[in-house]
Write a protein that binds this DNA or RNA. Structure first.
Lengths: 140, 140
DNA sequence: CGCAATAGTTGAGGTTGTGAAACATCGATA
DNA sequence: TATCGATGTTTCACAACCTCAACTATTGCG
């Protein structure tokens, strides 16, 4: 009788499908979008940390970064503290693309734009409760 | 100040990341999981319709179906009405794997298991309203 | 019949992903 | 200080995914 999660899953699936489409609008692949999302222009990140954020192997990140760098969106720079690591810096061009990308990704779907303010407020409140609990109970 | 959508997006992203992991548990790839999810054992589907459901090219589906068929989870069968189309039938083994897969995919995350019944009820109500509006306003 | 349209496959080319091995570098230890 | 295990990145081999264009077989219509 409790189909709450099922409903939410429908939404997750519907939104999931939007990402490849938005990626294509920017001539990027979904992993490239994910990477650009993670890479803040204000805070360079070592490759290893990007791999961790993307949840994939470090050797895989090499290729993704290669292609983003080839387009001039990011740059590898040697770290000053540790000569093994290369930090990823978002270029000016990359920052501009990223800005528009984030805007596009952040657009709420029609379904939510038409919800009443009261519903939105309630929804936000419930979600905050749920997410805070998720954060408070990490894997052992 | 309305971060409702942002909160929901966090949830979508978190759930999105779960799928490759669950797929790996079943020794399947994410597209294979998606395909098996779409293919109901009770209702065979032509390849073209599967391609449509997966949102990808028909030529791509050929390979995905190849691999699912090689594992004995589904079968290609000639359609009786149209000798061009091949309908995809879930085998007995496929139906069993699918059953467990759906169970695993349907598990609500901890965050929702700990929500109060009242919150769940409110959440379901709001989501139903949002999704019904989304369905009522399709693309032109 | 002739022929455009449709369902599926094939092949080329690019991207994602993993795992193993190589390499340079770091940090701790003897 | 010399060594040695651990770490960050890359490279390679391999499998899967994905698209596009071309191809075959079949359908349904004029």
């Amino acid at each position: 009788m409790d189909d709450t999660w099922e409903l939410l899953m429908d939404l997750v699936m519907a939104e999931r499908a939007r990402i490849p489409q938005i990626a294509a609008e920017f001539r990027l692949s979904p992993p490239q979008v994910h990477a650009l999302r993670v890479l803040s222009p204000e805070q360079p990140l070592p490759m290893g940390r990007l791999a961790c954020a993307l949840g994939c192997d470090a050797s895989n990140v090499t290729g993704i970064v290669d292609r983003l760098e080839r387009r001039g969106l990011i740059e590898r720079q040697p770290s000053e503290r540790d000569r093994r690591v290369k930090v990823l810096v978002v270029t000016a061009a990359g920052a501009q693309v990223r800005r528009q990308l984030m805007l596009r990704l952040g657009e709420p779907p029609q379904a939510f734009a038409t919800l009443s303010p009261a519903d939105r407020k309630r929804l936000a409140s419930i979600l905050r409760r749920a997410l805070s609990r998720a954060a408070a109970a990490p894997a052992p």
